[in-house]
């Protein structure tokens, strides 16, 4: 199997390399990909949408349908992961393990025993060897708010600089995942529950679809944000710019929530215990 696989792969690779001789040169300005629809986007983006970042303009306006269904695909992936992995009626462990943080002593508490209070020095753990690292925890706690502010900047400033909903949403999701890695999954779920993650992810898709629907109700075509000009009190071109911002926020919300949701279910195999 390995040998046939290798031969097949090498033959395919040689065929593909032979095919590249027909390709345009690298970075050729007159290549077919750069000479049909893309000059239109570059020349007209500012006049049509008042958004200088052409990538944002194309993503949320010219190709709005594509982006909407991509967001729906991401939401569906989050849902699929939830339905595949989540375990609700698992057997509860008879004894619960707690670690006394300052001394590192681990105690087992039998069923019916008195559990330590919240916010005390005790920390619930699941496996006998769970590392505790003060330096990593403290560093992550300090650094996470700054990353989150940067993520919000990436979403909001996506019109004028590289950025947008997808990138900002991924950075926001990564901060929560960083928190979950540096602390443990149980603490993270206490801060941002799975329910919130699922609500956020569907809310993002809903925000996107509802904006399109609103344009339809205001007498234009689906996802034509210029119809929102009366509602927003601006001219139609500026209304497109604001419409793109609303869409980017919806995308960012959805992407963030799905990244977190996927992590919750994958890292603990659907059990939602202490995780990785």
């Amino acid at each position: 199997m390995k040998k046939t696989g290798l031969i097949m792969v090498i033959v395919t690779g040689i065929l593909l390399i032979a095919g590249t001789t027909e390709f345009p040169d690298w970075a050729d300005p007159n290549s077919p990909a750069s000479s049909h629809v893309s000059p239109y986007y570059i020349l007209k983006a500012i006049d049509d949408t008042a958004v200088p970042n052409v990538v944002s303009a194309v993503l949320a306006d010219y190709r709005g349908y594509d982006t909407m269904f991509e967001t729906a695909v991401i939401f569906a992936a989050g849902l699929a992961c939830f339905f595949l992995l989540r375990q609700f009626n698992r057997k509860r462990a008879k004894t619960k393990m707690y670690r006394h943080v300052p001394t590192g002593i681990i105690i087992d508490i039998d069923e019916g025993g008195k559990l330590p209070e919240e916010n005390s020095n005790f920390e619930r753990i699941d496996s006998q060897w769970t590392p505790y690292d003060l330096i990593i925890k403290t560093t992550c706690r300090i650094i996470i708010p700054f990353i989150q502010v940067f993520a919000l900047y990436v979403i909001i400033h996506g019109h004028h600089s590289p950025g947008g909903g997808f990138q900002g949403g991924v950075i926001l999701g990564a901060t929560i995942i960083l928190f979950a890695i540096s602390h443990d999954l149980r603490t993270t779920i206490k801060r941002l529950s799975e329910k919130m993650a699922s609500v956020f992810s569907s809310m993002g898709v809903f925000l996107f679809a509802a904006t399109g629907m609103l344009c339809l109700l205001l007498g234009s075509v689906y996802l034509d944000y210029s119809a929102l000009s009366d509602l927003l009190g601006t001219d139609p071109v500026m209304a497109r710019s604001h419409g793109i911002l609303i869409i980017e926020i919806g995308v960012g919300l959805s992407v963030m929530a799905v990244m977190i949701w996927l992590y919750y279910n994958l890292s603990s195999a659907g059990k939602h215990n202490e995780g990785l």
Partner: peptide, 15 residues
Amino acid sequence: TAIVVSVATLGVALA
């Protein structure tokens, strides 16, 4: 969009 979707499909595949 493909990058984010590839992450999502990777998640489903791992699940």
